[in-house]
Design a protein around this nucleic acid. Structure first.
Lengths: 191, 191
DNA sequence: AAGAAAACTTTACTTAGTAAAGTAGCAGAT
DNA sequence: ATCTGCTACTTTACTAAGTAAAGTTTTCTT
């Protein structure tokens, strides 16, 4: 069973898919969910509030994937799993991925949003910590490594999904290509 | 001397800086430029048209930096110059950088926009071509290399400027850190 | 000097966000 | 059993903003 509030977030997926992020109106989201044009505002306060809830949910989904990757014991495989789960999320939930980093859509002073963002970052940081404890890239700063690896994966996927690399490339090639690149990066960062 | 049309694009910088990308209204842009609320629509057709012109100009500015980097004879230094010019553009023109990749804001079927995007990509591709001709990373696919290097630089800068890495990091450290990362990547990709 | 085109403005209409008040159904308390 | 209040919305109404269309003024062009 899903609540009315959750149904509104599901309606967002549909509205973004058909009308794009800028085509999101509270009226359309309400209509898509079979409710009045003020229903979304009732549950989430206003439009930024609706986007905040939507994006928070997306970050938590990404963080779930990262934390699942952490369960893999082999560090290299854990990194690869984290990267591919990020890419797969982008491919499977393009509506969510496309708006996740649009800070201007959200109410930035929302603790739940930052907590959701940090969950993913902390999972990556933990993996790096663990890898360094086992001798990988020990001469480097942990935060640097997190920024580098996250930056590469995010940038790569972002450009592929809707960016200028979308045209020349085949979506089915994203994950394998990304994995090659991440492997190279892991080797490059090692001492 | 600058034209009224250019003044409107300059007004955009100001409006985005003070009200954010979603705070851009034709009325505000007109007012900022000392014109009526329909002036921007007169010159650029409509709001997407205004953003298209604004973003096209930004891509051309980035491409200028990339093409300037191409003039450096040493390949490694050319890569580093290209990366730092990208990062410096992001730091100096945050308003422009923040909306450059927002495809939903623009009229995507605008040849000038794609031409401007391609200028930068082609400059990078030319640099990679040249580097491969001189023996660097010869076993790899050129497009792969372009995607990887652009993806890393873009992702890194994007997360630093306004993204989740903005908080823990100092802007002044962006360029030096990025250059370290790019050097590592260049070594990693080499055979 | 006259006509045309360029460079805007004025007016007016429609869509969308949002505040505020309203209503229907259900849950205990009495 | 009914009263009270709460939950879950809707209705109404107002204002900001995009945009079409027509109008006005200035500036070329010849």
């Amino acid at each position: 069973m899903s609540t009315t509030a959750e149904n509104l977030l599901d309606a967002m997926d549909q509205v973004i898919a058909t009308h794009g992020p800028s085509g999101v109106t509270l009226r359309r989201v309400g209509a898509e969910a079979g409710l009045s044009h003020t229903a979304a505002a009732h549950y989430y306060g206003d439009k930024p509030g609706l986007f905040t809830a939507y994006i928070t949910r997306a970050f938590n989904a990404v963080a779930d994937g990262m934390e699942a990757a952490l369960l893999i014991e082999d560090n290299r495989n854990a990194f690869l799993q984290a990267a591919s789960s990020y890419a797969e999320f982008a491919l499977e939930q393009p509506s969510q991925f496309n708006v996740m980093n649009r800070l201007e859509l959200v109410r930035v002073d929302t603790p739940e949003l930052w907590a959701a963002r940090e969950r993913g970052f902390f999972a990556l940081a933990a993996l790096i910590d663990r890898s360094q404890a086992e001798g990988w890239a020990v001469s480097r700063d942990g935060l640097d490594l997190a920024a580098t690896t996250w930056g590469l994966v995010h940038g790569f996927v972002d450009l592929w999904v809707g960016g200028p690399l979308a045209a020349p490339y085949d979506p089915a090639e994203l994950v394998p290509t990304l994995l090659r690149v991440v492997e190279d990066l892991l080797d490059a960062l090692d001492d």
